[in-house]
Design a protein around this nucleic acid. Sequence first.
DNA 1: ATTGAGACCTGTCGGC
DNA 2: TGCCGACAGGTCTCAA
Length: 279
Amino acid sequence: MPELPEVEAVRRYLEPYVMHQQIARVYLRRADLRSPFPRGFRRRLEGQTVDSVMRRAKYLLVTLSSRDTLLMHLGMSGSFRVDGPEDASLDGGDYPAGPGLHDHVVFRMASGAVVTFNDPRRFGSMDLLTPVQLARHPVLSRLGPEPLSSAFDAATLARACTGKKVSLKLALLDQRVVAGLGNIYASEALHVAGLSPFRRASIIATLSGAPRDSAVRLMRAIKRVLAQAIDRQIRDSRSSRFRVYDREGERCPRAGCAGIIARRSQAGRSTFYCPVCQK
DNA sequence: ATTGAGACCTGTCGGC
DNA sequence: TGCCGACAGGTCTCAA
């Protein structure tokens, strides 16, 4: 489930359990996720205290007293759960009696809380970066603006789309354009903005330096869709339903629109949209 | 440089 | 019920 709102919800869930807490032990139940764990992963984590739990795009960043940063990505199917001290029967031995299927990494905090990373598809990743590695990270350093920050405005979005020949949908999936949207919220934002996913991204581009109406609408739609999704994640963790995503054949939710939600594939991924009100 | 296609891995769901 | 293929919310790499 992890696009920006879901990752943000995970961040807020984990924070109270790990912030200012010491990592007592780390259990690796395999040698890799999408890529191998870095050398000395466990040794460099055990004994450290967590200074902060941050999110950038779909990445979680846990900074440590050693100045290293634990960089984590949930991939498609990654999730965390925390079991309280009362559930933890980990004394001494290996983790634990009867770990769940796909429980790949377990952090036992000095408080007794047990933080477990589960990821059936193993598209997730964990890396441990020195400050220099963090500053020069090939992916992080190229990410576009955080969509909910003031740094993300219509002019920025328009500039990022200038000269782009890909469709709007694909542009929104490009993490260098804006960081944190995935397949669901790209469709959702385009519907709110009333823009067709198939138009060239360059229709958003600046017009003699000034952002166009469509850029303003899309920027606002992105912020609104993500903010509402985070809200929903926090309030009820029931998997939320969407305006267009996974609603092929249903009525368009826009007031006064009689369209039927359609689905088409773009770059091998499903796009959901209303052919009537998205121009 | 940009773009599209394929790969990574497992689980689930619909059709037969 | 059981098998089989298609598909799933994300990146990364490679070739055109």
